[in-house]
Amino acid sequence: MYKLFYRNTQKNMENLLIDGSNYVPRIDYVPRVTMNVATGILHIEGESYHEYTLEFFEPIFNWLREYMETPERKIELNFKMSYFNTSSSRRFLEIINMLQEYEREKSGRITVNWYYEKNDVDMLDSGEEYAQDVKLEFNLIPY
């Protein structure tokens, strides 16, 4: 259903791209997700209100699990969301917790950047609610 480039082999791990707007008809309720093997830079942006987020986020969790099998990697996770539902909010927390565990147990070097539109106080609050609970480099960045 989604445009998905992902192969489940450690040696040939590929970049992950999920983009609902490439689909016909376009899908507006999933975020655009890009995960780059070479740079460790991940982007999750746009809107997210899939009703079955567990299913939507599964390839993202799988990609991360595989990527984090190798210790000491540098990962930069960029959230640039304009809206997400409560179900996505749980999945984001799970992703952030996975990264924290990787930093703690496998010496990963993690940065989380939480971008929010400068007038969007609700989105800033959301970022602060994640930041307060994790011991990671967590930046709140207005745009």
Partner: peptide, 24 residues
């Protein structure tokens, strides 16, 4: 409400919902 939201979000749920919709 903010604290309750953050605390409830950490708790595992049995079902498909996030269990924090009413608080949100």
């Amino acid at each position: 409400l903010r604290n309750y939201y953050v605390q409830q979000r950490k708790r595992p749920t049995g079902g498909v919902g996030a269990n924090i919709g009413l608080i949100d």
